[in-house]
Computed example of a mutant assay.
Amino acid sequence: MTAGVDHLVVGTASLEPGVQWLADRLGVAPAGRGRHHRYGTHNALWNLDGGTYLELIAVDPEAPDPGRPRWFGLDRFSGPPRLVHWVLRRPDLDAPWAAEHGRPTPLTRDHLAWTLTVPDDGGLPVDGSGVWPSLIAWDGAHPSDGLDDAGLALDRLVLSTPAADSLRARLVAAGLVGHLGNRVTVTPGPVALRAELRTPGGPVVL
């Protein structure tokens, strides 16, 4: 798969209340669920468009301690569910700057296999804001292939950061040229991450 927005990450302190909150916002129930034994987390998934999906993720209270920091800063997550991060898909993770986004970590779940950059401290990459993406490369099947199409789509991902020029240059270098100024917008300003979605009930902003 070519470079693009792979998925959005919504954090929640507890999965089931988060599922209810997000399903109410989107007007659509999740199309899939899963567990990540290596990191002691579980999730629910919604299909967006064009090989993109939305992931709601939380610490799994039934999982044993993973013996390592959980990804996406979930060990420190508190408060209501919210969009915390996004993941950029690349065919490979061998760019010299990729290590700045975390350690490439091979992972599997059921029939899925992928490599994701994960910082050693389990936090969000580069500056901890969630605006700079994690990088992912899939080996074969993609999660969106098995998720029902419920009429959801990502219209625009807006990334605001004081380091806008640096982030924009990094995304161009990552191969996201076709999305910049269209699906992905990088703007200078205070750190903020916003996803504009189309749903069966109308536009929704996360």
Rank of each mutant, 00 (worst) to 15 (best):
F72M: 10
V9W: 00
L15R: 02
P17T: 01
L197Q: 05
T41M: 05
L93A: 10
T185Y: 00
T161R: 11
G202T: 08
D110W: 13
P200E: 11
L15G: 07
G51R: 08
V59M: 01
V177Q: 11
A23P: 02
L112G: 09
A163K: 04
L93H: 07
G67E: 08
P203G: 08
L107S: 12
H42Y: 04
P30L: 08
I136P: 00
V10I: 15
D149C: 10
D149P: 01
L93W: 04
R70L: 05
N182W: 00
D6Y: 00
T117W: 02
A150N: 13
T115E: 09
D92N: 13
L193I: 11
E16A: 14
N47D: 14
V10A: 08
E100N: 12
M1K: 12
P91Q: 12
A195S: 11
P203K: 08
T187P: 00
L54Q: 07
P30T: 11
V172H: 14
R82D: 12
A163S: 14
T2L: 10
Q20S: 15
D92G: 13
G130Q: 06
L147D: 06
L147P: 01
V10N: 02
G178I: 03
A31R: 14
T185H: 13
G123N: 13
G32S: 10
T185I: 12
G51C: 11
D92H: 12
V184K: 06
T41R: 05
I57A: 08
S166F: 01
T41Q: 07
D110Y: 11
M1Y: 10
H37F: 10
T115N: 07
S144E: 15
A98K: 01
L180R: 05
T161I: 04
D24K: 15
L15H: 02
L26G: 04
G130L: 02
W86A: 06
R168Y: 09
T117G: 05
V19W: 01
L171Y: 13
N43D: 02
L206P: 02
A163R: 14
D110N: 12
V28I: 13
G151H: 03
G146C: 04
N47L: 14
V204G: 06
A137G: 09
A113T: 11
A98Q: 05
W138M: 08
G146H: 14
R76H: 14
R35A: 15
A137Y: 01
V28C: 11
R89A: 15
V204E: 05
T52D: 08
D139P: 00
G73H: 05
